[in-house]
Computed example of a mutant assay.
Amino acid sequence: MPDISIGRFRGGLCVYWADASTGKRRRHRLEARTRKEAEAEALAVYRRETASARNGVATVSDVWEEYRRDLGTKPTAKTMGYTGKSVLAYFGALPPSQITKAMCIDYGRSRMDEDGVSQGTVWTELGHLRSALRFAEDTRMIDRAPKIWRPEKPQTDKRILNAGEMRALLDATRAPHVRLAVALLLGTAARVGAILDLTWDRVDLDRGVINLRLDDAATRKGRAVLPMNKTTRAALEAAYEAALSDYVIEHGGRPVKSIRNGFTSAVDRAKLGHVRIHDLRHTAAVTMLVAGVPLEKVSQVLGHSNTAVTFSTYGRFLPSHMQDAVDVLDFATLKRSG
Rank of each mutant, 00 (worst) to 15 (best):
D70G: 05
R167V: 14
G338P: 04
R179F: 00
T307W: 03
S21M: 09
L13S: 02
L169V: 04
E137T: 03
R47F: 00
A218K: 15
G303E: 11
H278N: 15
E137S: 07
L272V: 06
R260D: 11
R150G: 00
D143Q: 14
V182D: 04
D324H: 03
K24V: 12
A189R: 07
K24A: 06
E41K: 03
A242P: 10
D113K: 13
G7H: 08
F311E: 10
G253M: 01
N229M: 11
M1F: 13
I160V: 13
K158F: 03
T50H: 13
D171V: 04
A53V: 03
R316C: 01
R260E: 11
G338Y: 01
G292V: 09
G187L: 01
R10L: 08
G338N: 09
Q300L: 12
H321E: 08
V122W: 00
A291T: 07
S52R: 10
M228K: 10
G81C: 05
Y314E: 00
R233E: 03
S110I: 00
K24W: 12
G72Q: 10
E152T: 13
N211F: 12
I277T: 13
G120D: 01
A40C: 09
L30Y: 03
V45R: 04
F331E: 00
L185I: 12
A40V: 07
A238S: 05
E66K: 02
T100W: 08
A285G: 06
G127W: 02
S258T: 14
S61P: 07
R29Q: 15
H177Q: 06
M80I: 00
T156M: 13
K24S: 10
V267C: 13
R150L: 04
W149E: 06
A145W: 06
D70I: 06
M166R: 03
R213Q: 09
L186V: 01
S86Y: 15
E125V: 09
F317S: 00
W200A: 14
V192N: 04
G292T: 14
I99D: 05
A194I: 12
N211D: 15
D201H: 09
G262N: 10
V117F: 11
V57N: 07
D215W: 08
F263G: 03
V209C: 09
G273S: 04
P176V: 02
T188A: 14
G127K: 04
H28C: 08
F135P: 02
K257G: 07
G273V: 02
Y16E: 12
R27E: 10
V309I: 09
